[in-house]
């Protein structure tokens, strides 16, 4: 087992044994391919996304956890949020510049849940149309500018 697989194995155990509220890892997806996970995410009670279900896709390179995972929303329901593009890409600094190997799938999920929970108004990023038209398929290939931590 490579060090990436060992690490992911540990993360999977922790996440299935003791999952944070609203986060459920799709173990079937993982059993097929250790380097690609699907995680179900439920909008927190009392937030604008209460009762909504979303899906996150995680892709890990052989350099994980030194390389950040590639994370985006997939499936029919992409949250309408100022930091989430309609193609599922997420503007969140820990997914690129501020990624640290001490973070994990769980901490990424928690950050995303908290990002959704603090949202005041459901709307797309102002540059959604142009971004979705020109961006790469891989959100990690976007050079993000993180400007607004309040939403």
């Amino acid at each position: 087992m490579t060090s990436m697989e060992k690490r992911l194995q540990k993360e999977l155990q922790a996440l299935t044994k003791d999952p944070p509220a609203g986060v459920i890892v799709n173990t079937e997806s993982v059993s097929q391919n250790m380097s690609e996970w699907i995680v179900d995410l439920y909008g927190a009670p009392g937030s604008l996304y209460d009762g909504e279900k979303f899906q996150l896709s995680f892709k890990f390179s052989p350099r994980y956890p030194f390389d950040s995972p590639q994370v985006m929303f997939i499936g029919p329901n992409i949250p309408v949020h100022p930091h989430v593009y309609s193609n599922g890409h997420i503007c969140l600094s820990i997914l690129t510049d501020d990624w640290s190997p001490a973070l994990s799938v769980t901490s990424v999920c928690l950050s995303i849940v908290s990002m959704l929970s603090s949202c005041q108004e459901k709307k797309r990023p102002p540059d959604n149309a142009i971004y979705v038209k020109t961006c790469s398929k891989n959100p990690k290939k976007t050079r993000w500018f993180y400007h607004d931590d309040t939403v």
């Binding site: 690490r7 540990k10 190997p101």
Partner: peptide
């Protein structure tokens, strides 16, 4: 507050 199992690993 660092996640225990990643800390343990390193």
């Amino acid at each position: 507050g660092f996640p225990q199992f990643t800390i343990e690993d390193f």
